[in-house]
Simulated assay, not measured.
Amino acid sequence: MIQEVIETKLHNAFQPEYLKVINESYMHNVAPGSESHFKVIVVSDSFAGQRLLARHRQVNQALMEELSNHIHALAIHTYTPQEWNEKENSAPDSPMCVGGGH
């Protein structure tokens, strides 16, 4: 399963305090059971002092193989533990797909 690969790679890359990988493919116009659209929430001390773009680049780098071959869309939410606490341990919901064949 792609979801398990994503979880393993992000865990190994960031040793997160909190990690959640959500398959959001059901929200899009894809076949049932697809693994093509994901949302990841990564809470790690390794993001301290980094801007959002640098954090997202690190996640993209860790998942380069999956992004090249399996994942169509990836929503990335990265936080330090302090930021996560300030957000009351929640990330924004993803919008439903508005159409298209992806």
Rank of each mutant, 00 (worst) to 15 (best):
M1T: 13
Q3T: 15
Q3K: 15
E4S: 15
V5N: 12
I6E: 05
E7G: 05
E7S: 15
T8Q: 15
L10W: 06
N12E: 15
F14C: 03
P16T: 03
P16A: 05
Y18L: 11
L19H: 03
K20A: 12
V21I: 11
V21L: 07
I22H: 00
I22A: 04
I22K: 07
N23L: 02
E24Y: 07
S25D: 06
Y26H: 14
M27S: 09
H28Y: 11
N29A: 10
N29P: 06
V30W: 09
V30L: 14
A31H: 08
A31S: 13
P32A: 13
P32R: 10
G33H: 06
S34Y: 08
E35H: 06
E35V: 08
S36K: 12
F38A: 02
F38M: 03
K39V: 03
V40T: 10
I41Y: 00
V42H: 01
V42C: 05
V43C: 07
V43Q: 05
V43G: 06
S44P: 07
S44M: 06
D45P: 10
S46W: 02
S46Q: 13
F47L: 09
F47A: 04
A48F: 11
G49H: 07
G49S: 04
G49C: 07
Q50D: 02
R51M: 03
R51Y: 00
R51F: 00
R51N: 10
L52Y: 02
L53W: 00
L53T: 04
L53G: 01
R55P: 00
R57A: 03
Q58W: 01
N60L: 01
L63I: 02
E65T: 12
E66V: 03
L67T: 03
L67A: 04
H70G: 05
H70L: 09
I71R: 01
H72N: 11
A73S: 11
A75N: 02
A75M: 04
H77Y: 11
H77F: 10
T78E: 07
P81K: 06
P81F: 05
Q82L: 15
E83G: 10
E83N: 11
W84G: 14
E86D: 15
K87P: 03
K87Y: 11
K87V: 04
N89I: 02
N89E: 15
N89G: 08
S90F: 08
S90N: 14
A91Q: 09
P92F: 11
G99T: 12
G99Q: 13
G101Q: 13
G101S: 15
H102L: 15
